[in-house]
Write a protein that binds this DNA or RNA. Sequence first.
RNA 1: GGGCGAUUAGCUCAGUUGGUUUAGAGCACCUGCCUUACAAGCAGGGGGUCGUUGGUUCGAAUCCAUCAUCGCCCACCA
Length: 914
Amino acid sequence: MTQNTRYNPTELETKWYDHWMKHNYFHSEPDEREAYSIVIPPPNVTGVLHMGHMLNNTIQDILIRKARLEGKNACWVPGTDHASIATEAKVVRLLREKGIKKSDISREEFLNYAFEWKDKYGGIILEQLKKLGASCDWDRTRFTMEESLSKAVLKVFVDLYKKGKIYRGLRMTNWDPEAKTVLSNEEVIYKEEQSKLYHVRYQVEGSIDEWVTIATTRPETILGDSAVAVHPSDERYTHLQGKRVIVPMVNRSVPIIFDRYVEMEFGTGALKVTPAHDMNDYDIGQRHQLETIDIFNDDGTMSEAAQFYIGEDRFVVRKKIAKDLEAAGHLVDVEDYKNSVGRSERTNAVVEPRLTLQWFLAMKGFAKTALDAVRSEEVKFYPEHFFNMYHNWLNEDNIRDWCISRQLWWGQQIPAWYLNGQADDDNASIFVAETAEEALAQAKAETGRADLTLEDLRQDEDVVDTWFSSWLWPISVFDGFENQDELRYYYPTNVLVTGWDIMFFWVARMIMAGYEWSGDLLGEERKDIMPFHEVYFTGMVRDNKRRKMSKSLGNSPDALKLIEQYGADGVRFGMLSSGSAGNDIIFDAPIDPNTKQVLNESQLCSQGLNFCNKMWNAMRLLKGLEVVDQPADEATTRINQLAIEWFENKFQQVLKENEQRFESYRLSEALMSLYSFIWGDFCSWYLEIIKPAYGQPIDRATYEQTLNFFERLMTILHPFMPFVTEEIWHQLRDRKAGEDCVISQYPKASAFDEALLNDFDKVQDIVSKIRDLRTKNGLSAKELLPLWVESGDRSRQLFDRDGISELLRKMAYLNDVRFTSEDIANGISFLSGTEKYYLEAELSIDVEAERERITKEIKRLEGFTTGIGKKLSNERFVNNAPAAVVDKERKKLNDGLEKIKILKGNLQDLEAMS
RNA sequence: GGGCGAUUAGCUCAGUUGGUUUAGAGCACCUGCCUUACAAGCAGGGGGUCGUUGGUUCGAAUCCAUCAUCGCCCACCA
């Protein structure tokens, strides 16, 4: 017998993961079986495991393991994302620490450093996923910047360019001065921040002492002002028609213009216009043909054009200029003000609107496709309401073209070449092709210059947005753009599991890409060209104050330490039990702010560990039993057979209910149902029933059946808690090589006998009530007492079933079960359903307390029956409600009245006794 | 400004097309037990009238409207 009363996850989890890997269980190759495929949302190659990863990878693992157990060809493709901005920023920082500036080295040198670093530190997160138990096909690990995937990116870029969907244009864009690149709209996160509103007065040109006061949160941009705007119908300013004002500091004369964009109520009603550094100002500038003065360098410092503070950072300048304006008498007022500030999603730098030349992807057609796919449920969202958010972003009024170029080196370089000596913005000199050679051929053909060589071409310096490679992920991980063998088998993938926060970045765009290319790749006959049939959006993981877990808040537990503390099974249990499908989950685990270790009072994961421990001990119980070949005595046999029959049926019921939960991705409910089934039904009832008296042996038939139940329980729990189930599975029986829980057979649900389950519910109710009576009356829990059943048809019926009375005797410590039609004088009566029972015992009843209890119960029942009585005497109810409902109400009423009658009888008996 | 979601027991949440005994679970809590699988355990128990106010209906936690509070998404913010 296994000595240790506690389950120890640490060593066992490593052992089993190695075992699974050694047997290659997670590897998938196309075959004749039904495929079940999932592609992982690729984490940042330099990332570390956080709670969000743990949640969505646990879910993916549950789905993939269940499919594997069901005999499907389960394939979970792992991989990482090159995450251009985040990774490049990290490499730049690292090089700076080494004393190397990015601007001092060549693109090639930089990429060498980056790859070196990626090879050394990248993919740590994948190793961490193994600790969680993730059963990915590691042989298939992909990376968004590896050759095949990069080729796919170039291919689709060229394809889209040819289709006229990609264009290049000078636009107001979001500039990240830290990463020194442009960002897409989705990469800018707006948040309310506390700032100041500066009121600055501009002198009217030619006046002695006439001023116009504007309000701004960004006084440093005054240096780039090219007008002051007021509303056309603002009477305060009509007299200034045609006048000009002098911009402070730079003493530039700029026009006062009239534009409806200006809100009269805001501030002073006068708006400074800086077309180079504000989206709206740019539009105003276009309308009024204003000068665009770019006063910033690409790193957010002041440029020559600013004339003042050249080379100093914009935020330093903001403070300085306020002082200088005040000194010069221009600063009228400063007030505290809350406004929303856009920051770069990756670097957190305040985004600077700038006019730049970028590549864009036209989104209108794509958006419609993506919207229709989900609207028609070809791609189904769970929970469904996320469609609303999706729709809101994709509808044609809101959708905006996707800026796909980035001024970075870490990524796929844009496959566009320019002729040396010609301006970059001259569309005629752009050659887009997958290779330089092809571009050259194009250039020769279009210019008619056969003498051109590669030297005459210059490739676009920029790379494409990372999401421009990850939107191809469900196709490219199967090398689908090169050959379609695997694509045909695994595509569309079954489900995508991801957080809703990347719905726009990734989910929507994958759907677009799926419909754009997979049809052509797979051939005409294939209609199912969506990248996945279903999307399960997980919630965000939040702390107990409902804050999103994030590095900057320091409120996220260290995922690996958590696994060390509670075991992967415990953590998986904790994650799933903290919230339900699609809702944000509150992971209430207090952590040590320094070590990020979860403090011991955390209940969440220890519940999971306790569960492991419970099953471990159930296993120990069985292994400690002496098994004999001769059958047990008759009574025991009847009990055991009843228990086995009941548990078998209960098992089918749970199995069936869980099928529905799986279909709708209610995984936490499925887990909780298994938890209470194993702990409550299996351990507390089934095992206690078949457990022989101390020192007694168990018959082989019952023992075998019990092992069989236990085994099947381990299989159905395996997707949720893979390690403990594998360990127990092996402890239960001697296993041949290749006989493992991870590849065992998930049982198929079959019909179950509801009458039997109902009868057993009654037995459980009777046992509980007897236990309660013993506690309440100070009787020993194990003193053998007789039970009297007041015979009536219904109570008789229950006892017709074989083994019921024997089972009651065992579980409720009864020495006899007898039937009577008389009242039992020294019996404590109780009701189960409408049947009356007496537990016979020598004791003095607290008459007063008992009377009170019964009176209270009668009162409750009377209220209840009166309510139903009213309902039933309402003709409209009886006429309109379905017959079944009316019958049910009648039964409720009769049962209630019956109970009242019995209780009143009890009350009389009490009176007689006192 | 447009939109979405939430509001049920101390906490976290179920409640699947309105009708199985005037609401369920887990945790927490209370009582009694160191009973030879498990005290990280066993047995039992208390606790909510479903955010507000109306409406629809024979019947509402469930449908509609209103208000309130909280959270989120998009757009805008001098």
